[in-house]
Design a protein around this nucleic acid. Structure first.
Lengths: 206, 206
DNA sequence: ACTATCTTGCACACTCATGTGCACAATAAG
DNA sequence: CTTATTGTGCACATGAGTGTGCAAGATAGT
């Protein structure tokens, strides 16, 4: 009856499955349970020992990812809404591995609901940011604030999921794209990033 | 041996299937043959009388769509590259029904190859336009021309496939988004469209 | 060493989708 | 009206994926 502590390799394997699922599902949201398990170096049967369901696995992936994003969203407190937007994009980019799954799964009809719910805080932040940016004259006002917020979300999702995350200028591309959508000209975005070099920190990796 | 002319209802049904497939696949690229056939008012078995394969159906959809897009691409001859880009986006938008399938299928691993091949002329046009726009100082130069071209493609695809095509301001949104990505500030885009009202012709429909 | 905890392979039942064969009913063209 | 053409329902084979039961083997913790 004295329940022994869970074995170490078990929790490692569980984490391995989540990691494998992350890569596999980012490429193909319909990746089979077998593919995921194999790419984690385990058998399909074992995966079912760790997760009740294919769905349970995916839900955990979404939830843990969303938690990170929402934390990031709260951490951005810049006065200047343009800076805030740029920083938000840059920070999210660093979580690329997690974001890519979320971005891919967000389109999957089966999980839109859960994803939307989990990402609600982040979405609220973006919406508030869009409104504030319009009020202080930083962002475009030819579109209604909710429309602009949604556009920013969609474009960010696209650039993140359709870009090779390992390429050097990728983070830069993401930030500049979002600023463009917000209404800035490319020169304005360029100046902004030049005067705040910490946002797109030079990443040593080639 | 005297082969009779094909019956009229047969060709109508064939067209009906293509049309139904267009709507169904735009929403869900994995829509089953049965769903497509039923939504065309026919039985699954009948569909297989018109198309050898699920693949054959999809390939025909892509090919016929691509033909339209490529024709549009050739029809845009404006001197001003900003105008050319805006007009291209607006014209493509009118083909929304066809574009949405292509946009959705373009992501499907099984058909990327064929889609890319079929849309090569359109892609060439965009690439040339990006280069020209950079040379005459209209478009951003903080990104390499091929990168910019790809970004324009991806963003156009996103805004097209993730927007309710029936909403009134949709075409406007598509055009403005593309111009923003090209590097224009929202005010520049606004002025540009104001001075060329024919591009986003007022669509009477509410 | 002992043992509870994992992992594995295999068989099985189930679902969903594809593609085909065939007989029969409907119908447009002549 | 006659008939070739087309549509339909059903059965069937196939394949891929999911989820479970079970017995046997491997292994980390104590």
């Amino acid at each position: 009856m004295t329940t022994r502590a869970p074995r170490r390799d078990a929790v490692e394997n569980r984490a391995g499955i989540l990691s494998a699922a992350r890569s596999a599902l980012a490429n193909d949201p319909h990746a089979s349970v077998d593919v995921i398990a194999r790419s984690a170096g385990l058998s399909r049967r074992t995966l079912y020992g760790h997760f009740d369901d294919r769905d349970a696995l995916i839900r955990e992936l979404i939830s843990s990812g969303a938690q990170r994003f929402n934390a990031i969203a709260e951490s951005v407190t810049d006065e200047d809404s343009r800076i805030a937007l740029a920083r938000l994009a840059a920070l999210l980019w660093r979580e690329a591995a997690h974001v890519q799954v979320a971005a891919a799964l967000a389109l999957d009809e089966a999980h839109v609901e859960h994803t939307a719910e989990a990402l609600a805080p982040l979405r609220r932040t973006v919406a508030a940011l869009a409104r504030r940016g319009q009020e202080d004259g930083s962002f475009r006002t030819d579109l209604a604030a909710p429309t602009l917020a949604r556009l920013i979300e969609e474009m960010a999702r696209t650039v993140i999921s359709r870009t090779d995350a390992t390429s050097s200028g990728a983070a830069n591309l993401a930030v500049r794209t979002v600023l463009s959508i917000a209404g800035l000209s490319w020169r304005e975005a360029d100046e902004l990033l030049a005067s705040h070099p910490e946002i797109v920190a030079a990443e040593a990796s080639e």
